[in-house]
Design a protein around this nucleic acid. Structure first.
Lengths: 236, 236
DNA sequence: GCCAGAAACTGGTCTGACCAAAAGATGGGG
DNA sequence: CCCCATCTTTTGGTCAGACCAGTTTCTGGC
């Protein structure tokens, strides 16, 4: 019964497309929130019919890897959306205790990311992390705070671990946090003392990763995020 | 800001079709194994274009409610037609790399859980953890392996941290793992050496939590899950 | 410089055509 | 009358072109 043959299965075009895009997302070449070319363009690029392309996009949309917005475009979605089901997400936005729990999950993953990044980061990846650290501290002579660079710094660390799910989930939680806490965050990041503290903490994280010091990196990340958490809590 | 209106959402044709067929199947008017009319006929009957009909069928196929056999026809799902769609599960099952990433997320969270549990566990919670540890090692004189107690042991630790999201996510990932890896898991857990190793690792985790040794608990949990991961990988 | 109107673009839908494989119909030889 | 090769029809898979209804972008007149 068990022949040494594997089934010859002529793949459907749409499945090949799904596979390709899935890989691009997994490898980080397509990042969450990024917009894909339009259906017509993509079909032309991939040299397939628009119908096949649409089938593939529908599959990806159903898996949550991609989000189709009518008359706007196709966007790389967050897989974590499936892990954190929609009703749950709404709870997060409305319930502070639940949000605290969510934030702790972020800390769990980020601490692990920093640890793993310190072990495995390539010189290239370290450069990327360094560049975001620099762009965060370079924003003008006014020492202002740039939240985008902050997020990118964290995402770059997760990306250095080679696990795209970490990147997705961290970004997801960050987005929820931003939408819920933007006033608190703004207030906090106008105080020069706090900005300096954030810079220092980020530097500590970076140094540990650069020095290939896993436990140091994890600890630094933990300290940083716990500090942020406690700061935010004072404003709630 | 909060008007008493609900959003007018113009439904897509394909979604309406999905809804209709789903209802027919749920009500038993379409029975498992039964063959649906061909794409062209169905499109004509429903008075929609074939492309929309195909989109709907694809959705249903992905949910497992329907099975498309090339050049043969469309059949009502014969296996578990009542199963709800689980895109994430399907995604993980279809892609081993993604599953590995998901499993790493589990490790991130469980390591953090063990660490936090060692810090915060109450005597009561420690008792719960101990009881699952005992029930795992008590299953008969045959030293057999009880996967349910194993899971409960892990969940009890997460629960001791007071963060229900950790419990939720760990269980979710565990379920996905079990559905995908049940053969590998069964094979591994029939070897007495492996069972002994699992018992020992669980005991180490428990001891560290009982001793209120956070870093020890985290390390023990990490060793345990990495061991499981590598064991499973040898069978894949 | 601003803003209304036109043009280009987006995803959603429909139609008609072709392909390759499978199933069904046909027909001629035994 | 039966068998099997051949032709026809049907099936899902794919492609191309067209139209729709909103969105975005460009543009020209004020």
């Amino acid at each position: 019964m068990n022949y040494p043959f594997s089934a010859i299965r002529q793949s459907k075009v749409s499945e090949d497309i799904v596979e390709q895009i899935k890989t691009l997302i997994r490898e980080g070449q397509l990042k969450p929130g990024e917009r894909l070319p339009s259906e017509r363009q993509l079909a032309q690029i991939l040299e397939v019919g628009r119908s096949s392309l649409r089938e593939a996009i529908n599959s990806l949309a159903m898996m949550g890897l991609v989000e189709v917005r009518q008359r706007k475009g196709i966007y790389v979605g967050s897989v974590s959306a499936s892990l954190i089901s929609d009703p749950l997400r709404q709870l997060m936005a409305s319930d502070r205790d639940m949000f605290t729990h969510l934030y702790d999950i972020r800390i769990d993953i980020e601490v692990a990311s920093a640890t793993a990044a310190a072990e495995n980061r390539s010189t290239e990846q370290l450069g990327v992390i360094a560049s975001y650290l620099a762009s965060m501290q370079d924003t003008g002579h006014d020492h202002s705070y740039n939240p985008v660079s902050d997020l990118q710094f964290h995402l770059a660390i997760a990306e250095a671990t080679g696990n795209f799910l970490r990147v997705h989930i961290i970004k997801e939680i960050f987005d929820i946090a931003r939408s819920q806490l933007h006033t608190a965050i703004e207030t906090i990041t106008t105080l020069q003392g706090n900005i300096d503290a954030i810079f220092r903490q980020h530097s500590d994280i970076y140094k540990a990763i650069a020095d290939k010091d896993p436990s140091g990196a994890g600890a630094a990340m933990g300290i940083h995020l716990q500090w942020v958490k406690s700061e935010v809590n004072t404003f709630l």
